[in-house]
Structures are given as structure tokens and as C-alpha cells.
Design a protein around this nucleic acid. Structure first.
Length: 756
DNA sequence: CAGAGGGCGATTTTT
DNA sequence: TCGCCCTCTG
């Protein structure tokens, strides 16, 4: 089992039971080490399968871990605690729902549900949604929860913040009333349960002597505290991660957890996995050289036994359109060489870049697949059907109620619902319970809807889950509604797919012929001292949880050999023979929004590091001198990251401009040499130098240059990051410190130059 | 109650 | 420029 591992991997797998940090570089066999460690612990009798807890961030990697584990050891993994943070916390809360103060059938709000709930609350409480935009409120609440803070823990020094805290509290009360929890709440609740309830805590602390964590660099503050609390009874944490691949700070990940963990728990017990089994030398050395520009790293240098391979190819095209066409031509050549389309990936920093590339691929009839976008359980029609199903389990879930009370239309208007909401608020109860208090025509329709829900709930006691889903799709009127809709074909298909998903779920979970709403008697998987309450759920409840925690694939035309398109973020953890990294330009990669703080550029650099290390054999970096963005043509300099990779690893397919010229603007470089420039439509433009790009632009008595510091009466202070046009038509793109980037007409906007 | 039209924002995203 | 969201109107 371990003899095929390299010495470092072996050392990591067989570490004695104490806290350890494994710094695992890209392509160094991280998952292999993690799963082999689990298998080794079990096989050597140091742990039972139930004494391990392995936690990841995505369902996909949790599944992968289980698959690999069973390949190493023929054991039954059912009942093992291997899953995502959210999945495991959910499990904990179901088993101890009383201690956690939750109803057993609590539903989980996904991000969209949560936003809807916040909007509803803000409206209901008469809060000004201009001053408190629901999105900001959501971010505030989730941010607080991810730091482990309840409303009373949040420091609020100004009136606005104080109000936010009140809103947080109101939202919390609403969730409480409705029996729902959001994603962050799953973690915080589970943490508090362990923290406050000594018997429960001690039970799990005793049970899990080995805690293994994947992608440790992505943990947030709360997850870190949850882990160390759970390990507080003498368990060992085996944390695997790569600080150089930390790219999720924007959603709360705290890279600092790695250094903290080393200092506070794993001192002297750090293993580095630096041998890379994925990429050739030039690619790897490019990545190493780039990431060396970051400060505050834990430090790591990847090496490979494979040869240096091909240099990294770089091309600079005049426009985003030409960049896309160039890529397509190159892909055609790769395919002609006999390469598989699915082994070719096109990566971009932001989704907006995909459109033009897709268009070019489509025109050339090259099959491609875009990752990202709406996933199955997030689709409107699927969410509608799920809302009906949720109401069967818990009719007091107002979010679900409002989602479908009048969908399909059944004559229940906004006025009626406002009245209902008022009544419910007065009585401090759910919309469902307030229905009998309603009078008039609206009341009749509402009563009919409530009747429908109860009728369906009744069916749940008789029908199996797939039968019930089918019943709901039909009797809710959803099917009829979409049949009448000209564009409802896909939606009908998805509803049918939901029935199929329910059938597959029932088979997978061995629910057999159990009625959807019933709980089987024999499903306890509790171990040890009988501390754990039954976490058994009805097929319906289990399916709803599954739908919330696992949003499903976003696009699985599996089997199709297609070129892979995705953001760099989405590419993390994947690898391809050939990789194109596109838009390697200042402002795009690194993204301009990250330029304001040093740590932002470092995160962008890690992102580029992730992108580069996806490639096995061949890597392309492409950039465009001009690009259509937000309806405007923008001119960009080449990315600083290109200059951070030593020449010896690069092969320029288009001439590399002198550094100074490029820094100013690549286009102007061409213009200055008097070269014609090839227009995207195939024509040529006579050389014409846009003055603004080289010497800046003068408007009135002010002279603007790229890099100049300016002050605007309303937007505050900022830096000029782009210029276009001349004279009164000149426009400047300015990155403001507080309000982001804006494009202003220099002839109109009142700006003071304060520097440069 | 649905469809049209104005306004606004526009990195990255899993659960 | 584009797409989403909200509001207004018929």
C-alpha cells in the first residue's frame, strides 16, 4: 500500500498520532497521501473506520476520497464520517437537533433562498433597502457567522453598523421561527453545540481520534475553531494543504490558519511534498519563479523527475477577438496532432471572457464544454418543485410558501399576501397558520392552497419518493404550466429529471419501497455509548437535504470529447495535457479590483500559480492588446506576471515588446514603429498613434497620465489606470480607493490631480 | 398579472 | 455591451 509512495509521502502517511501539517504542492499526490493515511490507520489497527473524521470542501472531493479509500481497503464506508464541513455539521445537527435547538426536519437555505428570506424580512420590517441592500446584509450576516459571531458579539460602533446587527438578529429570529438554517448557520450551530454541550462534545472528542482535513488553506476562522474544538480531547489533526494555492480569501478563507496551526499545534511536525508528478520542467519552473514573488509563504519548491519539456508559449494578439481566433487555430492543430479535446483547457480570469471564445469555438464547430453557471438543483423549475416538497415536511417554511403560493398562478395577489403576512406577524406565527384568519376571496384561495399542501403531505405517507415527486409535479400545476409555455421544454425535462433523481436517490440510499414521509426503523448507525440520537430521516427529508447540500453538476454531457472552458478558480484541482491561460493582462489578471491592497495582488499571483500548474505538457499564455469590456474597448498592458517568469522558460510566438514600451502600452509600441495594425475584421488600419496612451492627455490646463493620482468630489481619491480618446472626448478609467473603478469623461468630470 | 422598459452593475464561488 | 432586477403599465 505504501511501498509505491515516495519517501516524503510515506513519511506523511505513517506519521505518529499527533497534529501534523502536510504542505502538499500542486500535483504532489495530496489526495493519495490523505486516503492512504486513512487506509493505513485502519489497516494497522490504530483506528477503526468510525474513529476517523475526514473533511473536505466539496462533495466531489469527499466522494473521491471514499472511492480511493475503498480501492485501497475493501471496507464498507457507510456510516463513516467523511464529507464536507457542511455535510458533517448537518449530520451532527440532525442527530442532536434537540440539543441544538432545532426541529428535526429543519430545512437548509441555499444562497438564493437566504437572499430571498432577507429581502422578505427587510420589506416586512419596513427597512430602507437603499440604505441596507439585501446583498450587503447577506454578506454582513454570513461574514459574522463565518467569524463565529452572533449578533451580540459583533462590535458596532456606528449607527449604521448597529442597525445591521439588529437586522442580523431579526433575520436570525425569522429563521428560528421558520425552522430553517443557512449554510453558515450549519457550521456555527454545530460549533456551538460542541462548545456548550459537554456530553455531546466529549462523546465526539472520544470517538474521533484522527481528524483529516483536505485543502486546509481554504478553511475559515469558524472551521478552524470547529476542528480544534473537536480535536480537544486528544485527537490528532492531519491537515493537508498548500498556502500557494489559497485563492478563496474573498469567501472567508484564512490562509493564516496554516501558519497558526503550525505554530500552535504542529510545530516541528511539518512535511513538505515537493515532488511533482504532473508537469514538465519549464512549466513547473515558471510556476516556481512566479510564486517566489510572494512574501509570507510557508515556502516550497516543486521539482520533477520528468525532463524540462517544451517552453511555455506566449502570444500577444491585437484584440480579444484575434486572441480567441488564435487559440482556435492552435487547438485545431493540437487536435490534428491527435490530441483529445477533453485534454485541452481554456482558462480565464473572469466569466465575461468566455463568450468570445465560445463564439469562436462554435463558429469552427469544435465541441466544447463550459463549466460553471446554473446547476441542477438551482434551476427555477426545480426549486419550485422542491419548495412544494419542503412545505410537506414543514408548512411553516415561509420562504418556500411564498415561492409557490402563487406559482403557478392561482389568484393570490400581492395584496392578499401582504394581509396574510401582517396577520402572521401580529400572531408571531407562520403564513400557513395565519391562513384561517384570512377572510374574503383571497382567503378562499389561500385556504385552497393550504388544502393542496396538506393533501400532498398526506400522499407522502403513502407514495414512495419518486412517486411523490411525480405527484407534486403534476398536482401543483407545474407541469401544466410549463406545457403551456413555449419555452418550457427544457424546464419540463428538468422536472422529469427531478423525478429520476429521486428514484436514483432512493436506490442509492436503500430506501426501497418506503413511503416518502416515513422513517425506517432500522437506520441507526450509531456507534459507541448510545450518545447519538437517531439521525434517521424520512426519504423526503433526506432528499431535500441532499438537494440543498449538493447542488448537482452544472453541466454533465459526460462522455463527450470536448474542449474544456472554465475560470481559473474552477480549474483548481484539475489537470490537462494542454492549457491556455487567456487574458494575461494588467487589469484582468491581476484583476484591477485586487490592485488596491498588496495581499490582493498576492492572491492573484497564487491564482496564476494555480492556473500554470494545471498543465501537464503544454502551456500557452495569451493576451490581447485591446478588449471589449463593459461595452467599451479597453487597452491593457501585459500582465506583470509575465515579467516574473524568466525568459528561459518562455517562447514568444509574437514579438515581445521592449519592457518600457510594453509597460506603457503594447499598441502604442506598434504604432510608434509605424506598423499597420490588423483589424479584427481582416482590414488594416493605417498607423495612428493615440496620443493619450503614450504621453497622457491634456484637457484644459490639466495633464492626465496613467498612474496619476486624482481626486473627485464624489468618488474620492483614485489612480488613473486607463486613458482613451483626445481633447474634450478623452476618457479616463480611474480606480478609486473606495468606490472601485469608474470611467469618466475628462471634459466633464471635475478632477484634481494630486500626484503624478 | 404579465410583459415591457428603464436603471444599474460588471472578479473569482462551495456549501 | 449585456443581462438581471425592479417597477410601471395596459
Amino acid at each position: 500500500m505504501i511501498s509505491s509512495l515516495n519517501p516524503e509521502q510515506q513519511a506523511a502517511v505513517t506519521l505518529p498520532p499527533r497534529h501534523a501539517l502536510v504542505l502538499a504542492g500542486a500535483g504532489s499526490g495530496k489526495t493519495r497521501v490523505l486516503t492512504t493515511r486513512m487506509a493505513w490507520l485502519i489497516q494497522t489497527g490504530q483506528a477503526s473506520p468510525f474513529g476517523l473524521l475526514a473533511v473536505t470542501f466539496t462533495n466531489k472531493s469527499a466522494r473521491e476520497m471514499l472511492t480511493r479509500l475503498t480501492a485501497l481497503l475493501p471496507i464498507n464506508t457507510r456510516g463513516m464520517w467523511v464529507g464536507t464541513f457542511h455535510g458533517l455539521c448537518n449530520r451532527l445537527l440532525r442527530a442532536h437537533h434537540r440539543d441544538a435547538g432545532l426541529i428535526q426536519t429543519f430545512q437548509i437555505l441555499d444562497t438564493a433562498d437566504q437572499l430571498a428570506a432577507i429581502k422578505r424580512m427587510i420589506k416586512g420590517a419596513g427597512i430602507d433597502d437603499e440604505k441596507f441592500p439585501p446583498r450587503d446584509v447577506q454578506r454582513f450576516i454570513n461574514g459574522a457567522k463565518e467569524e463565529g459571531l452572533r449578533p451580540h458579539n459583533v462590535a458596532a460602533d456606528d449607527p449604521h453598523r448597529r442597525r445591521l446587527v439588529e437586522i442580523y438578529q431579526m433575520y436570525q429570529d425569522q429563521c428560528e421561527r421558520e425552522g430553517v438554517v443557512d449554510f453558515a448557520e450549519l457550521l456555527l450551530r454545530a460549533f456551538e453545540l460542541l462548545q456548550r454541550n459537554a456530553p455531546v462534545r466529549e462523546h465526539y472528542q472520544r470517538r474521533f481520534q484522527h481528524i483529516l482535513v483536505d485543502e486546509f488553506q481554504d478553511t475559515n476562522t469558524l472551521q478552524y475553531r470547529w476542528l480544534t474544538l473537536l480535536a480537544g480531547g486528544g485527537a490528532s489533526i492531519f491537515a493537508v494543504g498548500d498556502d500557494d494555492q489559497s485563492i478563496y480569501a474573498f469567501r472567508g478563507a484564512n490562509v493564516g490558519n496554516m501558519a497558526d496551526f503550525e505554530r500552535d499545534y504542529a510545530q516541528g511536525n511539518v512535511i513538505r511534498l515537493e515532488q511533482n508528478y504532473r508537469s514538465y520542467g519549464h512549466i513547473l519552473d515558471s510556476a516556481n519563479a512566479l510564486i517566489a514573488h510572494n512574501t509570507a509563504r510557508l515556502g516550497k519548491n516543486l521539482w520533477t523527475q520528468q525532463g524540462e519539456g517544451e517552453p511555455v508559449r506566449v502570444t500577444e494578439q491585437a484584440s480579444d477577438l484575434l486572441e480567441a481566433r488564435w487559440i482556435i487555430d492552435e487547438i485545431k492543430a493540437l487536435i490534428d496532432d491527435g490530441r483529445l479535446r477533453r485534454e485541452i483547457a481554456i482558462l480565464y480570469r473572469s466569466n465575461a471572457q468566455s463568450r468570445i471564445i465560445e463564439h469562436a469555438l462554435f463558429s469552427s464547430a469544435i465541441p466544447y464544454k463550459v463549466y460553471g453557471g446554473l446547476r441542477f438543483f438551482e434551476r427555477q423549475e426545480v426549486k419550485h418543485a422542491l419548495a412544494y416538497l419542503r412545505l410537506m415536511d414543514n408548512p411553516h417554511d415561509d420562504t418556500s410558501w411564498l415561492r409557490v403560493v402563487n406559482f403557478p398562478a392561482r389568484g393570490i395577489g400581492a395584496r392578499t399576501l401582504e394581509q396574510l403576512a401582517d396577520l402572521a406577524r401580529e400572531q408571531n406565527t407562520s403564513l400557513f397558520r395565519a391562513v384561517p384568519l384570512m377572510t374574503g376571496k383571497g382567503g378562499t384561495n389561500l385556504a385552497r392552497f393550504a388544502e393542496l399542501i396538506q393533501q400532498m403531505a398526506h400522499e407522502a405517507q403513502v407514495l414512495t419518493l419518486p412517486e411523490l415527486v411525480e405527484h407534486v409535479v403534476h398536482h401543483s400545476g407545474l407541469r401544466a404550466h410549463y406545457q403551456n409555455d413555449r419555452e418550457g421544454v427544457d424546464r419540463l425535462e428538468n422536472l422529469q429529471e427531478l423525478v429520476n433523481a429521486a428514484a436514483a436517490f432512493v436506490a442509492e440510499e436503500n430506501f426501497d419501497n418506503l413511503p416518502a414521509g416515513r422513517i425506517a426503523d432500522d437506520r441507526d448507525v450509531s456507534v459507541g455509548d448510545g450518545m447519538e440520537e437517531s439521525s434517521a430521516m424520512s426519504p423526503l427529508a433526506a432528499f431535500l437535504t441532499h438537494a440543498s447540500l449538493e447542488a448537482g453538476d452544472n453541466q454533465a454531457q459526460a462522455g463527450q470529447d470536448a474542449v474544456q472552458l472554465m475560470t481559473v478558480h474552477a480549474a483548481k484541482g484539475l489537470e490537462f495535457d494542454s492549457v491556455f491561460i487567456t487574458g494575461v493582462e494588467e487589469g484582468l489578471f491581476p484583476h484591477e479590483n485586487s490592485l488596491l491592497e498588496a495581499s490582493g495582488v498576492e492572491e492573484e499571483r497564487r491564482l496564476m500559480y494555480v492556473a500554470i500548474t494545471r498543465a501537464r505538457e503544454r502551456l500557452y499564455l495569451t493576451l490581447a492588446q485591446s478588449r471589449m469590456l463593459h461595452g467599451q474597448t479597453r487597452y491593457a498592458m501585459r500582465s506583470r506576471f509575465l515579467d516574473e517568469i524568466p525568459e528561459e522558460h518562455l517562447k514568444w510566438l509574437t514579438p515581445r515588446e521592449g519592457r518600457a514600451a510594453v509597460r506603457e502600452n503594447t499598441w502604442s509600441g506598434a504604432f510608434r514603429r509605424g506598423e499597420a495594425y490588423n483589424r479584427p475584421d481582416g482590414g488594416t488600419v493605417a498607423p495612428r498613434m493615440p496620443r493619450s496612451l503614450t504621453t497622457g492627455v491634456t484637457v484644459g490646463d490639466q495633464h492626465f497620465r496613467i498612474g496619476a493620482g486624482v481626486r473627485h468630489a464624489k468618488f474620492g481619491e483614485g489612480t488613473v489606470i486607463g486613458l482613451s480618446g483626445m481633447g474634450q472626448d478623452a476618457q479616463a478609467q480611474i480606480q478609486f480607493r473606495d468606490v472601485g473603478s469608474k470611467t469618466l469623461a475628462l471634459g466633464v468630470a471635475k478632477l484634481d490631480i494630486i500626484a503624478g
